[in-house]
Amino acid sequence: MLSYLASRLVQLGFVLFAITVLSFALLHLAPGDPAQILLRNQGALLTQTSIQQMRAELGLDQPLPVQYLRWLQAALRLDFGVSFRTGQPVSELLLGRLGATVELAAVALGLALLIAVPLGIFAAVYQNTLVDHLGRLAALVGASMPSFWLGLLLIYLFAVRLGWLPVLGRGSLAHLVLPGLTLALSLAPVYMRLIRASLCDVLREDYIQTARAKGASERRVILRHGLRTALIPVVTLFGMTLAHLLGGTVVVETIFAWPGIGQLAVEAILNRDFPVVQAFVLLLSLAFALANLAVDLSYALLDPRIRVEG
């Protein structure tokens, strides 16, 4: 276990290094000279000397490795420079929006599990019956639904036609319903299929037979004996679907004008505000890498049968 932890941490270190290098490169490969963009935004005169001065101020005249180290030092202090567009510190912009995204993602994840767990259990218990086949069909349909189209359809139905729910922005609980549901419905099919497959495997195990032979009720066999083991792979799935969830928040936030970091990032990309884009990519990739590490470790802890080799 310890050697596994060690090798996993070494791997994480490498991945973190690569993520920072790639994020750093993102800004530097981007077209346009940051010094000139900043000067223009400040309304300053663009002269040879003023550009030179700005470049020196930003450290752009240094060799690339030096620039990288300086950038990394600043990034560790959560200093990602200032937005090309507004001149505000990037970290301020991101942190101000982070709460909204976390709220949306958490609600969507909860809703997705609320939908997927009962359906997955149902499909596994009645496997290879009509119920199961319909469930498989529903999962395929759900997985094929573009979330941005689903969002528009939900807006049209519940906000335009029925007028039940507010459409755009954030505020009351009602504002959360449509974005949360849109994101949840795009996640639920993945979870449902995995819970079904996992529970199907478990229900074939000997100890399930044993439990039945002891006279445990079918309900108890499935929920107490089966589901507990079956949910272990679902933990891994959380790591896998996190990418899906993060990508989904970007799309859903844009549709519903949800003031989260995804919407901020899309605006930044369309306006070529690269410092914001860079910090966004760095932040999400870090979250993704750390979550996957946590999932791997918890996986090893949750299931004592798994012998991890370093």
């Binding site: 991945v15 993102l26 993060l246 990508g247 070529r272 884009v277 966004f280």
Partner: peptide, 21 residues
């Protein structure tokens, strides 16, 4: 290792950033 790194990014986010750039 290159593969590891690419898989360490959330794919749509990375694609979005590359296209943005």
């Amino acid at each position: 290792r290159m593969v590891d790194v690419l898989l360490a990014f959330p794919s749509l986010i990375l694609a979005l950033a590359i296209v943005g750039m």
